[in-house]
Computed example of a mutant assay.
Amino acid sequence: MSTTSEVIRLIAVRDVALSLDEVFGAVGDPAAGGTALFVGTVRNHDGGAAVDRLGYSSHPTAEAEIRKVAEKVVAEFPVSALAAVHRVGDLVVGDLAVIVAVSCPHRAEAFAACRKLIDDLKHEVPIWKQQHFSDGTEEWVGAC
């Protein structure tokens, strides 16, 4: 049986472009029959308003908080391998903002674990988004 540190293969908050290949490669495991991957991208609209770009900021503890979320997912599901990376800095429409991946013995478990990972990451990790709209206004999302 693998330890939590062996199962959690990649946790990062980065100010450079994210790599699907890196995240997918991190969760490869011969015991896994299913791998689920979620990619969050910058879209060109929000709430009916056109979005030009985003800026992501994070608290210095963000990586540690992602790890805590990952540890809870590993405790709840039969995870073979897990990875999660989030981008910070200025992003434009189409850029990758977050990638999470989970491999498990079966696909249903992989889907459920991946869903919990991204949902809990979005709710619990101190990463904030500043949206810049085409009309010149801006809005912070997730900031207290």
Rank of each mutant, 00 (worst) to 15 (best):
M1P: 12
S2Q: 13
T3K: 13
V7G: 07
R9E: 05
V13W: 01
R14Q: 14
A17V: 06
L20T: 03
L20E: 13
D21G: 09
E22A: 13
E22T: 11
E22M: 06
F24N: 13
G25E: 09
A26V: 03
G28D: 13
P30I: 01
P30D: 09
A32P: 12
G33R: 10
A36W: 09
R43Q: 10
N44L: 04
N44P: 04
N44D: 15
H45N: 14
H45R: 07
D46E: 13
A49S: 14
A49T: 11
D52V: 12
R53A: 11
Y56V: 02
S57N: 06
S57A: 15
H59T: 05
H59N: 13
P60G: 07
P60V: 08
P60E: 10
P60A: 10
E65S: 10
A70S: 15
E71N: 09
E71G: 10
K72F: 00
K72P: 01
V74T: 12
P78N: 01
P78M: 00
P78F: 02
S80M: 11
S80H: 07
L82P: 11
A83P: 00
A84W: 00
A84I: 06
R87W: 07
V88D: 00
G89D: 00
G89V: 00
D90T: 10
V92Q: 11
V92S: 14
V92P: 00
V93N: 08
V93F: 10
G94F: 06
D95F: 09
D95A: 08
V98L: 13
I99P: 02
V100N: 07
A101F: 03
A101P: 00
V102G: 02
V102F: 08
S103W: 06
P105H: 03
F111Y: 15
A112C: 02
A112S: 12
C114A: 15
R115I: 05
D120E: 15
L121K: 04
P126C: 04
W128P: 09
K129N: 10
Q131G: 08
H132V: 13
F133W: 06
F133K: 09
D135W: 02
G136P: 11
E138N: 12
E139Y: 04
G142M: 12
G142K: 10
G142Q: 11
C144W: 11
C144D: 14
C144E: 14
C144Y: 09
